[in-house]
Amino acid sequence: MDPFVVLVLCLSCLLLLSIWRQSSGRGKLPPGPTPLPVIGNILQIDIKDVSKSLTNLSKIYGPVFTLYFGLERMVVLHGYEVVKEALIDLGEEFSGRGHFPLAERANRGFGIVFSNGKRWKEIRRFSLMTLRNFGMGKRSIEDRVQEEARCLVEELRKTKASPCDPTFILGCAPCNVICSIIFQKRFDYKDQQFLNLMEKLNENIRIVSTPWIQICNNFPTIIDYFPGTHNKLLKNLAFMESDILEKVKEHQESMDINNPRDFIDCFLIKMEKEKQNQQSEFTIENLVITAADLLGAGTETTSTTLRYALLLLLKHPEVTAKVQEEIERVIGRNRSPCMQDRGHMPYTDAVVHEVQRYIDLIPTSLPHAVTCDVKFRNYLIPKGTTILTSLTSVLHDNKEFPNPEMFDPRHFLDEGGNFKKSNYFMPFSAGKRICVGEGLARMELFLFLTFILQNFNLKSLIDPKDLDTTPVVNGFASVPPFYQLCFIPV
């Protein structure tokens, strides 16, 4: 058959498939802009700032609406009420993970971030239990974070109060905490193996944040037939998995079943207990991918939040002064901060919360999916439909947070200066898919920041009023603009 005829037939089939998918069930789905064949609503979305586009569309179609990214149908949730109703009140029905062709290629359905069903539930339950087990290797997770915080302070001392970009050092600290939990080992910041790991993690975040990856996920045929950065992403992930597998083999040879040292040991012990169960989800494949998931999810998000926190503290020296006064009063100079201190430091706690609220790190979270046909607000959402959640619409709700575009710790303080919780605080998402490392991340943010401010004054290279804190939105995360500062020993 003539190649031209084959091409026309293929394009015609794709067009018909697109029209059929977009028209099927439209009477039951939430409203939304009319999609174009094949490309859907992509032309109506700013790929570099999806969150802003969703906010604009919500003003037209309401808090629940339908979009098509290519052939992929998505239902968008915008605003606290619908997000709570879906992710919390109907948590089980909305607990699936959205379709990610690239991740599915890399992870093969294993791990904790992109798995679904029984596998996801069992691996998540085990990971939560293990991360909360403060007795691994007779050292609590808090001990590990405190140790890394001391190392971080010593690295900052080496800058000798000269101007520096904190990106690298602030990236090393949370990565080392995860390494300590998974591998029972922290690395020197100049260790070549550690630097290679950091390089792969950072490069992957840069790649994932590009519009090209959005295109690959919406048109998965590209993955096999086109060159691009997605190939580098898959190569980096394969490198990390190979490295983790080597460490798993080392653990198998040296493990003491009665004295687990780290996450890998705990997983291997669980595998041993379930070795007679042919349906067990505790396999080497799941261990390797879960460890890679924890490394990827637990490094860049925390380091970016820390980097943004220091920029905001530079911009608002009056806030920094209040935090340091609270540190001096509650902790002093002669001991290290600990998590028990947080309950006695409402202002510092409010500042950490406000940093996370203000920066809105992951504006749309990772997409969910419905696990069955769901009736939601008089609409029928078919099983498997991807759910896109606007966390921006919750964290920047102007009824809950007056002047949401302003950095103001009073958003989390009552009139008496006591810490005030808010149900709208969802930087880790909400419901059954809430970030498994939430507790660890909150511990790291509090301890790293208090250790830094206990030991250093922060000095800006320019007038604080002239510092730009506008986030650089890159399609996946909101990151701070480049800046330098000086760490002046107190």
Rank of each mutant, 00 (worst) to 15 (best):
L15W: 13
I19S: 10
W20Q: 07
S24L: 12
R26G: 13
G27L: 14
L29F: 11
P31G: 06
T34Q: 12
I45E: 03
K48N: 09
K48W: 04
V50G: 03
L57V: 07
P63G: 09
F65R: 01
T66L: 07
L67K: 00
Y68C: 08
R73D: 02
M74D: 00
V75G: 00
L77N: 00
Y80R: 06
V82Y: 08
K84R: 13
E85H: 10
A86M: 02
I88N: 11
E93C: 13
H99C: 12
I112S: 05
S115I: 03
G117D: 07
K118S: 13
R119D: 05
R119Y: 05
K121I: 09
R124K: 15
R124L: 00
M129I: 12
K138G: 13
S140P: 12
T159Y: 09
K160P: 06
P163Q: 10
P163K: 09
C164M: 14
C164D: 03
T167C: 11
I169G: 03
C175T: 15
N176A: 04
K185A: 11
L201S: 07
E203H: 05
I205M: 15
I205V: 14
I207Y: 02
I207A: 07
V208H: 11
T210P: 04
P211T: 11
C216H: 05
N217F: 09
D224Y: 08
D224P: 11
N231T: 15
N258G: 10
N259A: 10
R261G: 05
D262Q: 01
F263W: 09
I264V: 15
I269C: 10
K270V: 09
E272P: 04
Q276D: 12
Q278A: 11
Q279P: 13
S280W: 04
E281R: 06
E281K: 08
F282I: 05
I284V: 14
L287N: 01
I289S: 10
A291N: 05
E300R: 14
T301H: 05
T302D: 01
L311P: 01
L314V: 11
K315G: 00
T320E: 13
K322L: 12
V323R: 00
V323T: 06
Q324Y: 09
E325Y: 11
R329N: 07
R333Y: 13
Q340T: 14
H344S: 15
Y347T: 03
V352H: 01
V355A: 07
R357K: 00
L361I: 14
T364Q: 11
T364K: 06
H368S: 02
A369V: 11
D373H: 07
D373M: 04
T385I: 02
N398P: 14
F401A: 00
P404T: 08
F407W: 06
P409F: 03
S429F: 02
K432F: 09
R433Y: 03
V436C: 08
V436A: 12
A441G: 08
L447K: 05
F448S: 03
L449A: 04
L453A: 09
N455R: 12
N455M: 05
L458G: 02
L461C: 14
L461T: 14
N474V: 08
L485E: 01
F487V: 04
V490M: 11
